[in-house]
Write a protein that binds this DNA or RNA. Sequence first.
DNA 1: AAGTTTTTCGTACGCTGTACGATAATGATA
DNA 2: TATCATTATCGTACAGCGTACGAAAAACTT
Lengths: 261, 261
Amino acid sequence: MPTRVLKRRNARLAERSPTWDGISLDGIPNGLTRERIVAAAIAIADEDGLAAVSIRRVASDLESSAMALYHYVPSKQDLLNMMLDATYGEFELAAEHVADWRAALHHFAWESRRCLQRHPWVNLLRTNDTEYGPQCIRALEALLTCLSRFGLDIRNAIRLMGVLFVFVNGFVAAEGVDQKRKRAKAQPQQPVFSKAVLATGKFPKVARFVEMGAELPDDQAFERALNWMLEGMASAVPSQIRPPNPANVNTKRSIARNQIG
Amino acid sequence: MPTRVLKRRNARLAERSPTWDGISLDGIPNGLTRERIVAAAIAIADEDGLAAVSIRRVASDLESSAMALYHYVPSKQDLLNMMLDATYGEFELAAEHVADWRAALHHFAWESRRCLQRHPWVNLLRTNDTEYGPQCIRALEALLTCLSRFGLDIRNAIRLMGVLFVFVNGFVAAEGVDQKRKRAKAQPQQPVFSKAVLATGKFPKVARFVEMGAELPDDQAFERALNWMLEGMASAVPSQIRPPNPANVNTKRSIARNQIG
DNA sequence: AAGTTTTTCGTACGCTGTACGATAATGATA
DNA sequence: TATCATTATCGTACAGCGTACGAAAAACTT
């Protein structure tokens, strides 16, 4: 995208009223705010991908100049951190009516996936070393509170949540890659597996897998894998706080220890 | 790192023998190869992080010039893909002596973690849309072959592996963040949770969790979470090919269907 | 020796984050 | 209202990035 940004900015500047005094033409004050900057950056990332988020581009969209942003945002890395935290604001906290900790974690997983899917770039941000901000802490507090109602202490709750979040994150990341591929289908082709390698005939099983069509991750696959995860967790949670899963009731392998592991 | 790269390159060029003819001073031919380029890039990423991998830097380390590399590597993105695939070459294939599919997956998970830990930047690469190359396919084929020996068909094996890999990937990513934090302890401090937010007192559970010290992911935590994962999978795998897990033998909830899910 | 192909390299363009200093707008105070 | 201090904005500049383009050199063929 050559000179596009600059052109856009010049266009914006050109249509400014010469008597502009802090109020833009349509009546919306364009004084900068940290919130406005973060929102603009998120909009860019949603629309054109995370790579398109540059200080100059954000400033251009805000009809401002690059350096003006640095009064509200210490650095670009901080801006990215704020973007990440802002997405946690969309997190719908666990409803009151969840019946047990398994349902709470189930809700947490689906809600996490929903938020991650809405902003595919979140996966990229989470790989850097980011700081957990207010929105994230708020969601975490709510879930901890919910889980504690069902008898899980903080340490164990954190363990479960951590593993679950890691799982959801990885799953959505894999989903995102596939979706990106599907969207860019116009390309000559972007084979997931190098065709040259498969053509050697040395890898019959992988070739057969490719032939029968890779199974793309979807809602059903997510639910299935999530239940594996939860089932495994249930097998480790002390029985007295285990949800009344009919499949488990008559089992003798309940773990008596009060510590998960 | 200002002008460092350029200086290094100039130094290298300066110490070149004027009668240089394809053989470098210490007798090692420095004709470029795709393999040498990839290896150099990996070395840089291991040492200075993925961000330090630039075409100019790689060329400098190879005592070459930036544009020379483009005859062996179509683009930087392709170079990154090749780096990723090369790491699969270090993957130690499942030993012959694994007793059942659960042991095979257990080995696969630990080996994946080992490789990922050796090259922390792999996590960053896997988030982009990459293509699976020969080394990756080789490892996949081996695991599929191993799993099929225990009665798992390709579709189900892929499902299990996919979820497991996603889990390992996410876990190591979390580990990597913590390790990076630990290494940069000299900094004034890099609180994982914003202290200003916690100081509001609105989030007592999170605050208590921070007080009692976050439990860093380690070998033990990995093994524990991995067993959750495998336990959940075992509950979904048809009973006749389920490994003889004593905890499961007397359970009636075996799923008779031949399809996982 | 001449011609062809492969490999290397210099230059240049547009982009990036941001340090620094000058300028403009705003709010407080005399 | 005039002056000053603070805050906000902006222009310029620097070093670095990926890589398109074309010239140059080296290597290999004939």
